[in-house]
Structure formats: C-alpha cells, structure tokens
Design a protein around this nucleic acid. Structure first.
Lengths: 127, 127
DNA sequence: TGTATTATTGAAAATGACTTTCATTATCAA
DNA sequence: TTGATAATGAAAGTCATTTTCAATAATACA
C-alpha cells in the first residue's frame, strides 16, 4: 500500500465522522476535494484499508455495506427493524463472550463489530 | 398469506436441507418441480416467510444472502475468512448474552443467528 | 354457487452495489 | 534516473434483488 493516495483521505474522513458510512457516502465527500475521483477508486482503497485492518465493514441491514474506522475502543450496534434507528453500544461482555467462543471453537475471531437487530423501545410501545 | 403457494414448497425444501441456502439455490431446487417458476416469485415468497418469522436471513459474507428455517433450536455460525468454511455452533452462552443485551438496551432482540467471522484452526496453522 | 376482492404469479425490464478491464499516471526501490 | 509495480479514472460489465404490469388463483361474501 502506497502513501499519498486516496486511502489517507478516506481515513481522515472516517476519523472525522466517528460514524459508519457507505462507499457512496464516502465517495460524495471525497468528490468535494478530489473532483475527478471514481467510485472504483473508493472501493479499491476501502478494500485495501479493510485488508490491512484499519477499517471494518459491516452489514447493517441496508442495501449497502458500511465502513468505519477500527478503533481501539470496540463498539457494537443495535439496529431497529421497524424505524431503522441505529444505536452504538459498548459492552465488555461482548469481548468476554467472543473470547469464550474463540476458546471453544479454536477460531481466531476477527469480527470486531457485532450488529444485532431488534425492535427499539419506542417501536415496541407503538405496537 | 395464502396457502398452496410456492411458500409451502420452499418451507419443505428448507426443512429437508437443514442448511442455509441462497435464493438462487432455492430457485434451482424449485425449478425441478415448478418448471415455470420465476426468481421474483422465490424472492417474494421468501420475503413473506421472513416477515412471518418462519425463515431467517443472514449475510454470511458471500455475494448473496442466505435463508434458513427458524428452528426452535437456535444455532449460530462461524465463517472462516480465509477458506470460507462455515461451521455451525450451538451455545447457550449466546442466548444468555443476548438476554443481557436486551435488558441493558431495552431492545427486543430479533437476531436469532449470530454470524461471526474469523480464521479457522487449519488456516491459522497455514500462516 | 357465482362474483367481487385481493394475493400470488410469470415475464421482462430495471435498479443499484460492486467489480473488472485497460490504458495512464504516480510512487518507490535500486 | 530508471525500471518495476501499485494506484487511478473511465467505461463497461456482473449479478443479486426489485419493480412493473398484466394474468391467474384463492378467499370472502352475497
């Protein structure tokens, strides 16, 4: 992976966002600075960043996958199936849980974001 | 949802398989009996089955999403990122874990399959 | 038992995320 | 500086999934 590429700019965008973004959203932001950038370049840069472990990909149930910075401070997501609200939670139980799965299975777990679907408190009331 | 539709046949296929299948795989099987069935019909039937809670959808990291019967006996999947081997595991820790997330968040968790990615023991050795 | 109502279907085309090809340009190592 | 290799833009391609629309099948209800 070489420096001074689109990848660095993508990393900066992801740092400033502190949120997950789709490739298209990243593309729209990048276009402001790199007017001629192509979506394929974005996808390829993201692929490299995921490969080196700097960025994670998650399927949050939408039509496109989302990308986010791999932070030292792991967090997870709850997605409401009704209103599609997404909340972030941090919970040390998750890593304890993943550790125990690792031990039992022998797999070295790479999932660093758990995405759980459910119905949020507000939508439960609406029923 | 009306009876005697494709949905019933899909349920039978899923029962007999005890494995997850892509829409395309289901389509190929269905074509043997319903020669003129269309993929759109399969997708629509699956959508209904998911909606009524008889079938679950999961993203196992492949290009297509997979469908499987919602069984009383919940199970989960580990997917190897290197060799794409998929193993199924049952673990009561998962439901304990999900219960605790439910209590903390107030979300009513609907995720019934956990898909965790990692590197399987064999691929770890190959390193 | 007809008949209106509404769901399901097949066919075909459309959508949209993502990938690939290929020629060009930029970066790094020697 | 030069040569090897990686990154890029442009354009076209792939492929899962969805949508449109007209036809058909299933249920409700007269």
């Amino acid at each position: 992976m070489r420096t001074s590429s689109i990848s660095n700019a993508i990393l900066k965008v992801l740092e400033s966002q502190d949120d997950h973004l789709t490739a298209k959203e990243i593309y729209e932001i990048m276009k402001k600075t790199f007017t001629a950038v192509d979506t394929s370049t974005i996808y390829r840069a993201l692929e490299r960043l995921v490969h080196v472990g700097k960025v994670s990909v998650s399927d949050m149930g939408g039509t496109a996958v989302v990308y986010e910075l791999v932070s030292k401070n792991p967090h997870h997501h709850l997605v409401c199936e009704k209103c599609h609200k997404q909340i972030t939670f941090r919970n040390e139980k998750v890593s304890d849980f993943l550790d125990s799965i690792e031990k039992e299975s022998g797999f070295q777990i790479t999932t660093n974001h758990l995405v759980l679907f459910g119905i949020c408190p507000e939508c439960q009331k609406k029923k």
